[in-house]
């Protein structure tokens, strides 16, 4: 400690060497935050537009709603372009938390649209294309795998709500499809080894979404309202009177096992 260099000046020099870099990073973060704010506003509007599917007369307007939502994605892609331009390629994960929630909402919206249009699960590549980002990390600003999974879990919650509202609107065909879809999605998620993370906690809610849909299926099938592919549509609101013999028959018991699972 008996040194000729005054300690104060060395401390100042050392700090001076990197404080500038920190300030640059802080400024960049502010800029990124602004861009994300724009995209986030769009994502909220998108969610509002899509929430129209829960209204009673939605089945007639479904293609309209989907079309409108798809149109909104054009703006989203433009907004994302602005954001992507600001993020240096090798610093994606420095700023990732600034946009991850927004991107998760976008994934959810894109996945919901894909389900409504085609009745199937959108892959990460498809969703990345819709949002306007790359699907592979090597190619630059990409869709993070966990953000994709978060979006899918939101989709499951939304579909369980959608399922209930379809029944209210007198649509007895959708619940069965949703049930199959969620079952597959749940099966897929159970293949993953999730760590004790936010994603796992969110995944824990998935079983309740599945359960909700199962209950809808149960309610429909005990009333004989369930329409499965190939079935002739039944008059809504009529009870199917089942005698003991029919109830124990193979056809009906297959219904009831599916709800007990």
């Amino acid at each position: 400690m008996t040194t000729s260099v005054p300690p104060k000046s060395t401390v100042a020099t050392v700090f001076g060497s990197f404080v500038g870099q920190l300030e640059t990073e802080a400024n960049l973060r502010d800029e990124i935050r602004d861009s994300v704010k724009d995209v986030d506003r769009l994502s909220r509007e998108l969610a509002v537009a899509l929430s129209d599917i829960h209204s009673n007369g939605a089945s007639e307007r479904l293609s309209e709603i989907v079309k409108e939502a798809n149109g909104r994605f054009e703006e989203v892609r433009k907004g994302m372009e602005g954001l992507i331009a600001k993020v240096p390629t090798d610093q994606y994960y420095i700023f990732h938390e600034n946009w991850k929630y927004t991107v998760q909402k976008l994934v959810f919206a894109a996945a919901l649209i894909c389900y409504l249009e085609h009745g199937r699960l959108a892959s990460l590549e498809e969703i990345a294309l819709v949002i306007g980002v790359k699907s592979d990390r090597k190619n630059g600003f990409h869709l993070d795998l966990e953000d994709y999974l978060f979006g899918l879990l939101s989709l499951a919650s939304e579909l369980s709500r959608y399922c209930v509202n379809r029944v209210t609107a007198g649509d007895y065909k959708s619940p069965g499809k949703i049930f199959t879809f969620l079952g597959e999605l749940g099966g897929g998620f159970r293949l993953l080894n999730l760590k004790n993370s936010e994603l796992r906690r969110r995944f824990d809610a998935l079983k309740y979404d599945e359960k909700k849909v199962e209950e809808v299926i149960y309610d429909l099938s005990v009333r004989g309202l369930l329409v499965r592919d190939g079935d002739a549509p039944k008059e809504p609101g009529t009870f199917r009177v089942i005698d003991e013999k029919t109830r124990l028959s193979a056809d009906f018991s297959s219904d009831s096992t599916s709800m007990q699972e």
């Binding site: 199937r120 699960l121 597959e184 999605l185 099966g187 993953l192």
Partner: peptide, 14 residues
């Protein structure tokens, strides 16, 4: 199913 296959790939990556 396609979904399962997709999730298998995701599981490996995770």
């Amino acid at each position: 199913t396609p979904t399962t296959a997709q999730f298998r790939a995701i599981a490996d990556a995770l």
